[in-house]
Nucleic acid binder design. Structure first.
Length: 666
DNA sequence: GTAGGGTTAG
């Protein structure tokens, strides 16, 4: 028993009639007079049984049970083209093109859909050899419809091959709105904003997809104001009104992400907010939860938590995203009280909510509460582990962090580059070379090392004193170094007394045209101080200011004071201190005091020591140093006075720790 | 809701 039916394939749009095509101004346009596309109706025969089986196959494929679908397919003795096509589509969706191709080749009678399925499958594979395969099939097709043309056009367009896309577009017998949309999307994908707008303006008819494509594409290209103009100009035309809220929301989010909250608000206010009312004014669309969330997010982005909360309170319908946005807002400018209050009121928490709270408490240093939430969290994910480990690291509880890291591995959670980067910082904090090397091995096994990970490795090795290993990683980075890589390596050399190497690398850095930062100069000046390069030190200090426009910080002054002071230019050192644009800190006075000790300048030493005592009244170092200087010079009365003051203020000499010896204790 | 193309916001 056969039932035959004429089924209109609803996804095939109506052919545009000649009247609507006339306004096309495109110079290469070929009038559709002789070779139209195949008809939009299709008839096929089928049994009720095959219809039921086909439905079953499609349902199984939709729920991801491909092998079960294949079993049904194999058991059928009366397959229709829909049966074959459904099965092919299942493989295509999974990108199993070899299996799809096998069925396609075995098929007794292919129809246009079979060909189109294969073509779109090859194109979705996103590799140029697959596009060629798709094109080969397209060229072999006995007849083509809009879908065939549009699939290939969009395939070329999204692979940056606009010339070929346009060639096909122009040689199509007739174009529909999807063809135009594909080309416009292609232009935007390839950054050609002007052509996208030009084609949008001259297309014969537009739908909401056209507007959405243009608006989101313009925003992705950073053309926010152009997007806004287009929306205002075309948004109120006759078509696609119900979908306009998408375009508006895209624009709100676009402005919001760039911190342009006023413009975002302006578009938010333009969307009507009448709940349940139809046809209010000229606009038929209304705000939805995404509009509200996007606007809230814009406020959160600029730190205007009050306005964000106002919106949150006004919302009649909230989803998990709304709650999370608000909680995350509080977690960020660190209002954990408000964040956890909201969290406790939330109807349905998800991983994002928990992770926000965990990282929030970790950030403000309340590691106990962070751990508390972490332990209560039902389904921890990678981000939860990363947040808590980073929290421990940030709070310098390195041992606790290591414990968590091993617990994470025991629970079968694989680390990613963020975890490993944190763990490397932990090794650096612990100065644990053994652990660091283990993590390095894990890095090699787990991720493709990127620049930040390599930087962490260089830092870890150089802080742990493994300068050779640090340099090996540094060299392996080849041309993929950033200024942090250079700083880490130069800093490593400088802090381990390899001053010549540090200065040599600094020269190399400049030769590679990498601009040094203030951190680079801290290392460079400290290297100069180490080897007593007084002329070089001065030159570097002033070239930092004059050539690189970097404002000297207190650390730079401390180094220069150290450099010139140790060289005996105590007056210059004092002048530097007096002319600093900010209050000298203990490093600066410490450097001067050290220099005074070396050059036996008691008067200046007294000045420096007094300043140090003002800054750190409980420290014994300046007293001890002054005492020793008086004693060395035989000024026993003065020495005794120092001892008495120390006793009166009950300052105890800390064993093995004094200013002159402290350079390695930092 | 039996198979294929463009657009889908936070």
């Amino acid at each position: 028993m056969f039932s035959s039916g004429i089924l209109r394939l609803s996804k095939i749009p109506l052919l545009p009639c000649l009247r609507t095509l006339k306004p096309i101004l495109h110079s290469d346009f070929v009038p559709p007079c002789y070779c139209g596309l195949p008809s939009l109706t299709k008839s096929f025969s089928q049994t009720p049984q095959s219809f039921q089986f086909n439905k079953k196959i499609s349902r199984l494929i939709r729920s991801g049970r491909l092998s079960e679908a294949r079993a049904v397919f194999d058991s059928m003795n009366q397959r229709t083209s829909v049966t074959w096509n459904s099965m092919i589509s299942g493989y295509v969706q999974r990108r199993e093109m070899a299996k799809a191709r096998q069925l396609f080749d075995e098929m007794p009678e292919r129809d246009i859909v079979s060909w189109n399925l294969m073509i779109s499958g090859y194109i979705s594979c996103r590799a140029s050899r697959y596009i060629e395969e798709a094109r080969k099939l397209f060229d072999q097709m006995p007849e083509r419809d809009y879908v065939s043309w549009n699939t290939v056009i969009s395939g070329y367009a999204k692979n940056g091959r606009m010339d070929e896309a346009l060639q096909l577009f122009n040689s199509m017998p007739e174009r529909n709105v999807v063809s135009w949309n594909a080309v416009i999307t292609g232009f935007l994908f390839n950054g050609n904003v002007a052509s996208a707008i030009e084609y949008f303006k001259k297309m014969p008819e537009r739908d909401s997809a056209s507007l959405n494509a243009l608006i989101s594409g313009l925003i992705q290209n950073g053309e926010l104001d152009a997007a806004a103009r287009i929306l205002l100009q075309y948004g109120n035309n006759d078509d696609g009104k119900e979908d306009l809220v998408h375009a508006y929301n895209t624009l709100i989010a676009g402005y919001g992400q760039r911190g342009r909250v006023e413009e975002a608000r302006c578009f938010f206010d333009q969307i009507p907010d009448y709940q349940g009312q139809k046809d209010v004014g000229i606009k038929k669309f209304k705000r939805n939860v995404v509009s509200w969330n996007s606007m809230m997010m814009s406020y959160v982005k600029v730190g205007d938590i009050v306005s964000a909360r106002k919106l949150f309170d006004q919302m009649t319908e909230r989803d998990t995203f709304s709650w999370n946005t608000m909680i995350n807002g509080y977690v960020q400018i660190s209002a954990m009280e408000e964040a956890s209050t909201l969290f406790s009121k939330m109807p349905n928490t998800d991983a994002f909510s928990w992770n926000s709270i965990i990282s929030g408490f970790a950030q403000i240093g309340d590691i106990k509460l962070a751990k508390d939430f972490f332990e209560r969290m039902p389904h921890k994910n990678l981000i939860s582990w990363n947040s808590i480990i980073a929290g421990y690291e940030k709070n310098e509880d390195y041992r606790g962090a290591v414990k968590l890291f091993s617990q994470m591995q025991l629970e079968g959670q694989k680390p990613d580059r963020h975890t490993l980067s944190s763990v490397l910082s932990i090794c650096t904090g612990l100065v644990d070379l053994y652990l660091g090397k283990q993590v390095h091995q894990l890095v090699t096994k787990t991720v493709l090392p990127d620049v930040p990970i390599n930087n962490s490795l260089v830092t870890m090795y150089s802080r742990c004193g493994a300068i050779i290993e640090a340099r090996t990683v540094f060299n392996e980075m080849e041309l993929k170094k950033d200024v942090i890589s250079w700083n880490a390596m130069i800093g490593g050399y400088a802090s381990h007394g390899f001053a010549a190497e540090a200065l040599e690398l600094f020269k190399l850095m400049k030769r590679f045209k990498v601009n040094p930062t203030y951190i680079t100069f801290i290392s460079v000046l400290s290297a100069c101080a180490h080897v007593g390069l007084v002329e070089d030190g001065r030159r570097q200090f002033y070239s930092m200011i004059n050539e690189y426009g970097i404002e000297p910080r207190v650390e730079h002054f401390a180094s220069l004071v150290d450099i010139v002071g140790r060289h005996g230019q105590l007056q210059e050192a004092l002048d530097l201190i007096n002319n600093m644009p900010f209050e000298p800190d203990k490093a600066v006075w410490g450097a001067l005091l050290g220099a005074c000790r070396v050059h036996n300048n008691v008067e200046l030493a007294q000045v420096a020591a007094e300043a140090l005592i003002r800054l750190e009244p409980e420290s014994s170092a300046p007293y001890v140093l002054l005492y020793n200087m008086y004693a060395d010079l035989g000024l026993w009365d003065d020495a005794e006075k120092v001892r008495v003051v120390m006793e009166r203020k009950s300052i105890k000499k800390q064993t093995g720790y004094s200013w002159v010896d402290s350079s390695n204790c930092q």
